[in-house]
Amino acid sequence: MNDISFGQYYPSDSFLHSLDPRFKIIFTIALVVGMFVCNTVLSFAFAFLVILVLIFISKIPLLTYLKNLKPLIPIILLTVILNLIYVPGKNIILHFWIINITTEGLKTAAFVTLRIIGLVIITSFLTYTTTPTSITSAIESLLKWLKLFKVDIHIFAMMMTIALRFIPTLIDEINKIVNAQKARGADFDSGNIIRKVKAMVPVLIPLFISSFRRAYELANAMECRCYNGGEGRTKLKTMQITYKDFISLFFVIAIIAALILLNKLKILGV
């Protein structure tokens, strides 16, 4: 159970979860582009309506998405302030000292903020509804054509999969070692930076040792199961394209088309 709780995957049985990961990657890219296309009030309104509907379909609480936005608040604030100050314009609404706040600045700041929020939520749709391993195999499948240029995409996908697979194991391991050293009175929380870095040594050394041991054991285990690269390998979980993917494809195309159209319509000039 611990093994699937890594990354951001949020298990559920929604429509979005059941889509083919390859399609989901393409949809995500399309919607990200769509978000950049938006530059009128109407198109943004429509984009967020779509996002709200998707959140509903995903059967994941809204709060979980908002949690993702929290670390971005400083960046958003910074871009808002910079845009307010630096975007030139004619319509000055506020003036103090050497700073002019213009309607143009206000508009850009609002749009940039909305765009960041939209992008974060759209990419969360992919990471929340798809396990890291299926994302990796989807990428592998989508980049198959690179074989023509003698790029061995399988090796990279395998490395990615293994790395992802071991993230929770490593986190577990770090927790265990940290606790074991804490039990001997190690102090990770106090002191200046140098002391804190020094305090990590009793954690890092056992971690490296066990990682190398793991790598060695895994390599042996793979060899014992006759792993010899990507040639002729089949998958346990094959990806299946279903009618759901085509329905979604239709909707995504419709959404992008609507966004482009709505961009032409302006309310009160914005």
């Binding site: 050293q181 039990a183 056992p206």
Partner: peptide, 29 residues
């Protein structure tokens, strides 16, 4: 932290917590 010195906890497979150059230093941690 003082409580942890009073109640010594030894984890399963404690050998994986060793990190020092010598046995002496590790016991002295």
């Amino acid at each position: 932290r003082n409580i942890r010195f009073k109640i010594g906890l030894c984890f399963q497979y404690p050998e994986y917590q060793l990190f020092e150059e010598t046995v002496y230093k590790d016991i002295a941690f």
